[in-house]
Computed example of a mutant assay.
Amino acid sequence: MTANSKYTADAGRIEAALSDRTIALVGLMGAGKSTVGRRLADTLGRKFFDSDNEIERAAGLSIADIFTLHGEAEFRRGERRVLERLLGDEPHVLATGGGAYLDPDTRDLLREKAVTIWLNADLETLWRRVSRRSHRPLLKADNPKGVLSRLLDERRPIYEQADLVVTSKEGPHKATVDSILKALDEWSKARHG
């Protein structure tokens, strides 16, 4: 672990337990997957990938444009292809899109190749974070906070299937990274003693 982290975990034990598995952060938009993922990757000395950024790069379009021009179903197919490619790479930290884990095939792929961590945030935290930006295609509605609330309720049972659950709260992202390290350390102890 680097000096960036307050939590002192056994990095060797965590890496041994992870073996060749990626750490995949799942959860709703605004949970902090990208920001926390970058810090976690830095702390563990791993590469970081944001699947939405990789999708945009592969398509040559923004996520919003893909939704507008091709629809959500086509976006999800492209998302799965990008995740398959990324999960074939060396182990890293991966921030997935908010809907990626909902697809059963994508979820199976993540279960096979990664340790999944649901960054769980309450509605008010999510709303504060996403309302600062207007690029979220699923929130282009008359009542975006209501849509966000509905998505959280609908997706919660699926997100709960992740290997680990960590709460993402307002405040320093380092605190969430520390919570992830603690959860991974406990997970590694359970797997390798």
Rank of each mutant, 00 (worst) to 15 (best):
2 T>K: 09
7 Y>H: 12
7 Y>Q: 04
10 D>G: 07
11 A>G: 00
13 R>P: 08
13 R>M: 13
16 A>P: 00
17 A>V: 11
18 L>D: 06
20 D>A: 15
22 T>F: 06
24 A>I: 11
24 A>K: 12
26 V>I: 15
27 G>H: 05
29 M>W: 10
34 S>W: 05
36 V>W: 00
38 R>E: 12
39 R>N: 02
44 L>H: 01
44 L>R: 08
47 K>H: 08
49 F>E: 05
51 S>Q: 00
55 I>A: 02
59 A>T: 03
60 G>Q: 08
61 L>H: 13
67 F>V: 10
76 R>K: 06
76 R>I: 04
78 G>M: 12
79 E>M: 06
79 E>W: 10
79 E>A: 10
80 R>Y: 13
81 R>E: 14
82 V>R: 08
82 V>W: 08
83 L>M: 13
84 E>F: 10
85 R>Q: 13
92 H>W: 05
93 V>L: 01
95 A>V: 02
95 A>N: 03
97 G>D: 03
98 G>H: 08
102 L>P: 02
103 D>A: 15
105 D>A: 15
105 D>S: 14
109 L>P: 04
111 R>C: 12
113 K>P: 04
113 K>M: 05
119 L>D: 05
119 L>Y: 11
123 L>K: 10
126 L>E: 01
128 R>W: 04
128 R>I: 03
128 R>C: 02
129 R>Q: 03
131 S>M: 08
135 H>P: 00
136 R>D: 09
144 P>Q: 10
145 K>R: 15
152 L>A: 14
155 R>H: 11
156 R>F: 03
160 E>F: 04
160 E>Y: 03
162 A>D: 07
164 L>Q: 13
166 V>I: 09
168 S>T: 10
170 E>M: 07
171 G>K: 03
172 P>M: 08
177 V>M: 05
184 L>E: 04
187 W>Q: 01
191 R>C: 02
